[in-house]
């Protein structure tokens, strides 16, 4: 799958590229407005990750140009500006998602994959990892043919870990992902522990031992 990352901050760009390369994505990069336009015209991408503040023009302008040319590539805006207005403007112009800096790469990964899934499957879709099968439209999980009832938080948690499978996901990233209040008010990530514990217990009951590993005090990793 092919990604275009338009971001002028070299260091951040490098991180994103490295992360998605590890996820077996093909990554193209652009560091300015003109650069971005050229890359858009040359190829088709499964997803474009777009910064708003770019040298040579705004990411929103670029997005407008893209949509005017009937380009249907998925676009995720990443921006340091976090106001409802910015968000609405971005989504109005035709962005598929909006992520505020600073974000966790695992979160960006989850968003990119969700977007690609939506674009490809057009509705019903099943996510499979090992013995786990998640029906995304009905939000149900089946483990080795057995139904596994989960709470909303546990479902979100499992899906997030599955999307980032074989990777260590930090507690903070999980906390931000599953908390649905104002982003300034994410409570301390301590609460993640008890939900992981519940999820682990339920997985164990269905025969999925050690599927979720605790990585020291850092975070968690799901291996199929």
């Amino acid at each position: 799958m092919k990604l275009l990352i338009i971001e002028d901050e070299q260091s951040l760009l490098k991180s994103i590229v490295q992360y998605f390369n590890q996820e077996k994505f093909l990554c193209e990069t652009a560091v300015s407005y003109e650069d971005g336009i050229r890359k858009i015209e040359d190829f088709q991408y499964d997803c474009i990750i777009l910064d708003i503040n770019l040298p040579g023009g705004s990411g929103l302008q670029l997005l407008k140009y893209l949509r005017q040319n009937k380009n249907k590539d998925g676009v995720i805006i990443i921006s340091a500006r976090d106001s409802l207005d910015d968000r609405i403007t971005g989504l109005d112009i035709g962005a598929d998602d909006y992520l505020t800096k600073p974000f966790h790469l695992s979160e960006l990964n989850a968003r990119v994959r969700a977007l690609i899934r939506r674009k490809k499957a057009e509705g019903a879709s099943i996510l499979e990892t090992g013995v786990l099968k998640v029906d995304l439209s009905s939000r149900t999980v089946v483990s080795a043919g057995q139904n596994m009832p989960l709470s909303k938080i546990e479902y979100d948690l499992l899906l997030f870990l599955m999307t980032n499978k074989n990777r260590v996901v930090s507690r903070q990233a999980i906390a931000e992902h599953i908390y649905d209040g104002p982003s300034e008010q994410v409570p301390s990530s301590d609460f993640v522990y008890s939900h992981i514990k519940n999820l682990k217990r339920k997985l164990k009951e269905r025969g999925c031992h050690e599927m979720i590993q605790t990585i020291y005090g850092l975070g968690y990793k799901l291996t199929p």
Partner: peptide
Amino acid sequence: QTPLAIIRSKLDLLI
């Protein structure tokens, strides 16, 4: 915000 985002991304890679 930007340096914070950079640190965060590097930490995600490091872990």
